[in-house]
């Protein structure tokens, strides 16, 4: 009899804790989720850029989602250099063909994958980018070659709306 009572009580305790935990979770989640990117931030998802005035070898920087995006019109030497690299020399192997569909235009988020600084154009040991914060070197395809950054600079989703306009996002 008493054993049965204990079982019953334990079941009631467990059930109460479980319901309590769900209740606490339901209350806490809105308080946590309010910190996530809100609707107005998400609404700024795409931006269109006119690239007609960019000369070969030059880079322009535009702001997309609060982050700089590098749009580089590469010279033929730079393209050749990027494509000649052997995959085994890369820390994060990725073909230049996959990063720049149109080889003349390299579009990528200008944020160092180490800790988020903006790398400098036409600097570093690989004629690409150099991050001044902690010394990461990127090549002419924006791939990490030397330094603490773990991955290549990210290529965002983009498309050519027409020959002069790139839509990022």
């Amino acid at each position: 009899m008493s054993e049965k009572k204990t079982e019953r009580r334990e079941f009631l305790f467990t059930a109460s804790y479980a319901v309590g935990a769900v209740g606490v979770g339901a209350v806490v989640w809105p308080l946590i989720d309010q910190m996530n990117p809100d609707a107005s931030v998400k609404a700024l998802a795409s931006t269109e850029v006119d690239v007609s005035s960019v000369q070969p070898g030059k880079t322009i920087t535009v702001l997309w989602r609060g982050k700089p995006v590098f749009i580089k019109r590469r010279t033929s030497e730079e393209i050749a250099e990027a494509r000649a690299v052997k995959m085994e020399d890369l820390k994060d192997p990725q073909k230049d063909e996959d990063r720049a569909k149109n080889p003349e235009w390299l579009v990528m988020i200008g944020v160092c994958t180490h800790l988020g600084c903006v790398p400098l154009n036409d600097k570093g040991d690989y004629n690409g980018w150099f991050c001044p914060c902690h010394g990461s070197h990127y090549d002419t395809s924006g791939r990490i070659r030397k330094g603490p950054a773990p991955t290549n600079m990210e290529v965002p989703k983009y498309e050519f709306v027409n020959s002069n306009t790139i839509k990022i996002g």
């Binding site: 910190m35 996530n36 990117p37 809100d38 609060g66 180490h114 988020g116 600084c117």
Partner: peptide, 27 residues
Amino acid sequence: TVITNLFSAIPFVGEGIVNWLWGGYSV
């Protein structure tokens, strides 16, 4: 930017945590 990006080093959920800390896609 640099300090909050420290959290992006966490595998899998790092990126999500950083966006949560920022309340956006950048500081």
